[in-house]
Amino acid sequence: MPTVTLTVNGRQVSADVDARTLLVQFLRENLRLTGTHVGCDTSQCGACVVHVDGKAVKSCTTFAVQCEGADVVTIEGLAKDGKLHPMQEAFREHHGLQCGFCTPGMIMSAVDIVNRKGAVDEATIREELEGNICRCTGYHNIVRAVEAGALAMTGKAPARQAAE
């Protein structure tokens, strides 16, 4: 079995894995980081989105062995020192989640959108959320959350205030 060594949420981890282990399985089963979810088999739904070397990817469509030496951040690693990431804060403030299942992937994608594009408008957010499916919210409040989270991340407004 190949050995894979990578950094997950700032912590170096190493394990012998069956080569067919997907990154999402590695996170959920080896590391018990169950915040990353699996909602489909065809790389459509985005519940499994994590950041690999700073970029959003679908962890259900990535082998763990492909991540040798990579820096992986999951939903569990987004808050720092007990303080929520502005995008997490914005999702709560704008009711951008209901059942919560798509939420980790949605938030990881949203952070990635802002990392790439800065403060984004509604049309861009809707287009950029192409790879994330939510069945609960109708996306209305997700869009509001990403708008506010983007402003907060880019220093234009705190996520909380933006809701008032």
């Binding site: 790389s43 985005g46 970029k55 959003a56 679908k58 994608s109 192409e130 790879g131």
Partner: peptide
């Protein structure tokens, strides 16, 4: 092509 995550890989 695909979606942003697919385009990253």
């Amino acid at each position: 092509i695909g979606d942003p995550q697919v385009r990253h890989r």
